[in-house]
């Protein structure tokens, strides 16, 4: 590799705006309820799926006590997964948030798996509001931002209806070139 030895001044980063300094807006607290309800529903059905054969054996009264002990293994694993997932939801929720700067938007999520993604307004191809039946009931809306190539797509989930509309309007205004 022959890179010509050119001037190599030390990089002055004091003028570069820092991402850490900005304050993040939290998402709606109702979204926490929605996610916890989701967690509860999934755990309930998983537990039901694991326990059903056991209950059937118990009711029909078949002597399968050798297999009885083994039923606790899947249930234990499920509890472990449920615990980690709950921790992720409970501790991670306060970390969910977005921040809008003059020229870009940043979204932060997660406790166990943390990401902080910044997308410049200039690169947003289009934006979308999406709402399922449950989030409609809770008055929540999700904002999706699409960039070219698709790997930088951003989904800011769980905004109150009004906030989502405002955010979208802000994005639309700044995306327009």
């Amino acid at each position: 590799m022959d890179i010509p030895a050119a001037s190599n001044p030390p990089l002055d980063l004091s003028g570069v705006p820092r991402l850490e300094d900005i304050a993040f807006h939290p998402v709606s607290d109702k979204y926490r309820q929605m996610r916890l309800a989701m967690w509860g529903a999934v755990q309930f059905f998983a537990a039901a799926a694991i326990l059903t054969p056991f209950i059937i054996f118990k009711v029909t009264g078949e002597e399968e006590l050798g297999a009885f002990a083994a039923w606790w293994w899947p249930l234990g694993i499920q509890c472990l997964i449920a615990g980690v997932w709950f921790a992720e939801e409970w501790l991670g929720f306060p970390r969910r948030g977005y921040a809008v700067r003059e020229r870009d938007i940043t979204y932060r999520t997660g406790w166990m798996f943390r990401t902080t993604t910044t997308v410049p307004f200039g690169m947003i191809q289009h934006s979308e509001l999406s709402q399922g039946p449950v989030s409609r009931m809770l008055g929540l809306n999700h904002v999706k931002l699409f960039t070219a190539g698709g790997s930088g797509n951003l989904r800011i989930a769980g905004l109150a209806e009004e906030e989502a509309q405002t955010l979208r309007a802000v994005i639309e205004a700044r995306t327009r070139r």
Binding site: W111, F113, T116, V119, P120, T147, S151
Partner: peptide, 9 residues
């Protein structure tokens, strides 16, 4: 198109 900082706990 975007920049991301990613890490686990």
């Amino acid at each position: 198109q975007g920049v991301e900082w990613r890490r686990n706990a």
